[in-house]
Design a binder for these strands. Structure first.
Length: 292
DNA sequence: CGCTAGCTGCGCAGAACGCT
DNA sequence: AGCGTTCTGCGCAGCTAGCG
């Protein structure tokens, strides 16, 4: 009997060290899904619970109590208290291409909107990139080289002082400015910071960037991708999820900003996210800028 | 007490996503 | 078309309940 146990133990050790693929083939099973159904179900379930707990914790640990019922409510508070909270600017940029190591690509359109609304709450401009826009990029945002590579279209360096003045006009003294964009951390914010660097201008240190993709990933019940593995969190999927009507064409900066404004308010409401919760998710401008 | 079987958590690699 | 982030699944080690 002890010998049998030893043999069984040895078998188990050897067997457990075999590639799972081999075991599946040996068992006559297809080599597609390698986890057992029960394990897969448990892992999947655990992941979902953790996600929900994290989302709940994000809103409950802010210590706000009555103040953590969404940005919409906070907007009212901000209005009623004459701007006691941070300014939230939803923004989007269109460029000549991706953010790559070559550092060649430029911004061709910039749009932003102050979420608190009111007069002069938007800023929108085409920007002369001083380079041609690749055809495949033109097809995305419908902004052609002819439209922007003109003498009457300002360069980013020309727009920069106006942008800074606009933001300052919307900013509450002593309070930060929260910039919100879809994929801000990986695209919009670094791109904007790079343009600041190129102009040798330091991005204000009280600017914070929030990525709406990161927030959307915390949402439960988002639609899944075609393979059923991932939650779809692109702007179009979020727009459809919330039943937001599309006005104008997608992939133009102000149109995307308008859509994102509505999506963002829905997300913050669903996540019960407060200003403090938002600040916890924010990244400082210094993280993207090289000019110090 | 020793062993088995199952579960959990961590680190890693690869795939997919999302932006223009 | 590039790149960073996120997610998923695998492999492994460690833990523990149950059993003989």
């Amino acid at each position: 009997m002890p010998l049998l146990l030893r043999v069984n133990q040895l078998r188990n050790i050897i067997w457990s060290s075999c590639p799972v693929m081999l075991q599946m083939q040996h068992a006559g099973l297809p080599s597609g899904k390698l986890l057992g159904p029960r394990s897969y179900e448990k892992r999947h379930f655990t992941t979902r619970v953790q996600t929900l707990e994290t989302a709940v914790m994000d809103t409950t640990t802010t210590g706000l109590g009555s103040c953590n019922s969404g940005i919409q409510q906070l907007k009212l508070q901000r209005t009623s208290e004459h701007g006691q909270c941070a300014t939230i600017l939803v923004f989007d940029i269109e460029t000549t291409g991706f953010l790559d190591k070559s550092n060649n690509n430029r911004i061709v359109e910039l749009a932003l909107r102050d979420l608190s609304g009111g007069k002069n709450s938007t800023f929108e401009t085409l920007i002369n990139p001083e380079m041609d826009i690749p055809t495949f990029v033109e097809k995305v945002h419908k902004i052609s080289t002819k439209m922007v590579r003109r003498h009457d279209i300002p360069r980013f360096g020309d727009v920069l002082p106006l942008l800074l003045a606009f933001v300052q006009s919307r900013q509450t003294p002593g309070k930060p400015v929260i910039w919100v964009a879809h994929r801000a951390k990986a695209f919009d914010a670094p791109f904007l910071a790079r343009e600041f660097d190129r102009c040798s201008v330091q991005m204000p240190t009280d600017w914070l960037f929030v990525d709406s993709v990161c927030l959307a990933r915390k949402l439960p019940n988002m639609p899944k991708s075609s393979d059923g593995k991932k939650h779809l969190v692109n702007l179009e999927a979020l727009r459809k999820h919330y039943g937001i009507r599309m006005e104008g064409s997608a992939h133009r900066a102000m149109q995307d900003v308008t859509t994102l404004c509505q999506v963002f308010q829905k997300i913050t409401f669903d996540l019960n996210l407060s200003y403090e919760g938002l600040m916890n998710d924010a990244t400082k401008s210094s993280a993207f800028s090289k000019v110090s």
